[in-house]
Amino acid sequence: MPAAFVAVSNIFLLSLFIYGLAPASGGHINPMITFATIITGLTGFARGVLYLIAQTCGAALAGGLIRGSFGRNLTLLYGGGGCLFQPGLMTAGQVFLIESVLSFCQIFLSFGVGLDPRQHAVFGPKLGPLLVACSLALVSFSSVGLGEGYPGAGLNPARCFAFAVSRGDFKYQWIWWFGPVTGAVVHSLVYHLAPPYHRQLREEAVETKMAYQKHHQDANRESQHEANEKMADGNLA
């Protein structure tokens, strides 16, 4: 029941935050998604790095607020809020593998329903954020109970960093960062290399651009020719 509540609340909270932040940053609130858009070419490198820095700083501030609001004992009792596992029941390697696979699934779904520019005509800017939030809720809910001692996927390095700050424990923080990074890199390979559809689109785009340039040059030459004829007629007159 708590897992279902968290999943449903994620649908509303995440979609509303994306809508709210869209004018400023395009809705970038998750380093995993930001990094995925950088390596797929949808976000510029400099802008993406600024987003990552802002997300990490915001997470550190949130971790401090959690610790200050609930105190040391309550924060440690609940592990800061999430992004943890019990080393005696699961190994760090197992958790890293699970986090990598689930991160890939989340990124794949997010691109498919909202981030890929080609889907703009299908879902548009109004429906995309809601579908991204639904995909996060589904992946998050499905990860609960995958293994004993593993409460569920992190899927957001900044969120996990905030929890680490709140409980003052960074021992396994690499899992919640490199897991999503691994998932993003694998997704980037799939996005760029797997379907020939991308290469076909690039070829069509190049052909369209060349045809447009040729048409523009022909139009300029025709206009110049007409101007020269008018000038010649004027001189004869």
Rank of each mutant, 00 (worst) to 15 (best):
I33R: 00
Q119M: 09
A205D: 10
I98V: 15
L16D: 04
E207G: 03
A133K: 09
L13F: 08
V139Y: 02
N73G: 05
F45K: 07
C160R: 14
M231N: 11
F104N: 01
Q86S: 12
I29G: 02
F35R: 01
C134T: 06
Q86R: 13
T40E: 01
N235A: 11
T40K: 11
P196W: 03
H216S: 10
G88K: 13
N228L: 12
A92W: 14
S103C: 07
H225W: 09
W174E: 00
A211H: 12
Y172K: 04
M210P: 00
L16H: 08
A194S: 07
L201N: 05
P31Q: 12
G179T: 12
L14T: 11
F141A: 02
F96C: 00
G88F: 10
S143G: 06
C83M: 14
E207M: 08
T56I: 11
I38S: 01
A219D: 09
Q213D: 09
A137M: 07
L138R: 02
C134H: 06
L74C: 07
A162G: 13
P125W: 15
M90V: 15
V139L: 05
V49R: 10
W176T: 11
A60E: 05
I18P: 02
T182A: 15
D218Y: 06
G112L: 04
L14Y: 04
L77C: 08
I33V: 15
A153H: 08
P31T: 14
R202N: 04
G80S: 13
G114V: 05
Y51W: 14
F45A: 07
C57S: 12
G114N: 10
T56N: 09
S25R: 04
N10I: 02
F17Y: 13
P151F: 07
P87W: 11
S135V: 02
V95Q: 06
M231R: 15
E148V: 08
G147N: 04
E229F: 10
P180M: 14
Y212D: 05
W176R: 12
R118N: 07
D116T: 12
C105P: 00
P151G: 05
S100G: 06
R221C: 03
L14S: 01
